[in-house]
Design a protein around this nucleic acid. Sequence first.
DNA 1: AAAAAAG
Length: 532
Amino acid sequence: MAKDPSFLFAGVHFNKKKFPDDFAKFEEKRLTDYSVSNSSLFGMAVAVQEKVTALPVKKRKRSGATSDQVEGFNVFKSSELESDLPKEQAEKDEDSPSKEKKELFRQMEHDAVFRKKLNIHVSGAKIPSPLQDFAELKTRYGCKSYLLRNISKLGYKEPTPIQRQAIPVLLSGRECFACAPTGSGKTMAFVCPILMKLKDATKDGIHAVIICPTKELATQTTRECKKLARGNKFCIKLMTKALVRTPDLSKLHCDILISTPLRLRLAIKKRKMDLSRVEYLVLDESDKLFELGLVKQIDFIVKACSNPAIVRSLFSATLPDFVEDLARTIMHDAVRVIVGRKNTASELVKQKLVFAGSEEGKILALRQSFAERLNPPVLIFVQNKGRAKELYEELVFTNIRAGVIHSDLSQTQRENAVDDFRAGKTWVLIATDVIARGMDFKGVNCVINFDFPDSAAAYIHRIGRSGRAGRSGEAVTFYTEEDIPYLRNIANVMTASGCEVPPWILSLPKKKWRKHRPKRVSISTKPEDHEE
DNA sequence: AAAAAAG
């Protein structure tokens, strides 16, 4: 296993030198904002705090120190700063400081054991205890009954590790990096604290913003928010074309606004949308949002959210080091929550590699596998839009009910493709990476990587459409001669999540991700090609 | 290097 997890993103071309500048500028502004709106002392405390909290992270990177050592650092730090104790602990035994200290220490030991049991790794100062159960939301944080009712009605039995830790962190007003496997309930983990913190009396401005990399994901997240908020009069809005055209967008009231980056940036720029009162900003699939081409828009949005008391959080199943480094320059006293190991695939997915020989071999292998056993719903990922269209043409004339989705389709066509697949009208959905991230389809039994993925991160997200919410799943990845140099990168992910890989693949030379994707010959077994 | 993110 490679020591450096950044191998995962070796193929991502990212100008590390360039963007820290943008963020440095932002940071400058942020610090001055602090000194204007708050006391300058507070601004200084921020800088000092960041210096201190950066230490354990660096230590971890260099020496591969375990999270326990990192937590040990926090134990030390917290016991020094008892004036800032969480309320519930500070209230106890006010008359006897040594007893108070002991009780706190006992609690922290207990938390450390509990986190270890659940494979939760944390770093940062004064991290709140993980939740024992959802009921604790009421006892510890005064959560309203409607939300607990919705949580139970929606079938959440007990919190997943990311929910156990990220919810208390966000509720305590701390910024947060969160990395947890695909399908482990990250969306609920950031929506729930927002709903709890919103004051239903306020009727002005935008209070929380969630950014998603695709329209499909934004739509899904909006629906999820509305389900959790049911029975309450919160205003939850998806940033649609129609909404952008609303007259007087600058006076829009909305409790939670969900948007894709470009559309929101345009609304701020052209329609004077006002984000200065935003209290919560969530960057979902944050590593995707920090990719070249999107990061500038994210930067613009982050700057537009000028409320100095804002709580920002980053969520993803893959969190490369460069994203953390970049984000750390803008985050303030952030807590880092990692469930399991960073950048690993869901262990619920049984992964397989299949040598398909050539491009023609792939379509044959697909046809044969469908003839033997078609266990819908099945998702098929291809390299680009053109190939999605081609493969769809291949399957549309068979008795297999197939759908297709990619960004060349109209908004309605895209929506229909998702809806039909969800409703079971189509058994097989052919897709580009547009739906590789975050999309939650009920019980996808099998993900087929018809074309080899672009990166280990893409692989992890693609196969993560299956094996969600505790269900098992299957993933098959086709490869050809051209893909062999990159096979080992995927094989490493497979072994890390407990799947068997032929030994010869693991002994292949290490290779960084390609700069040029293979030009794949067209998928060409159309009947007319053969008959004429 | 493609895909996605506007209109």
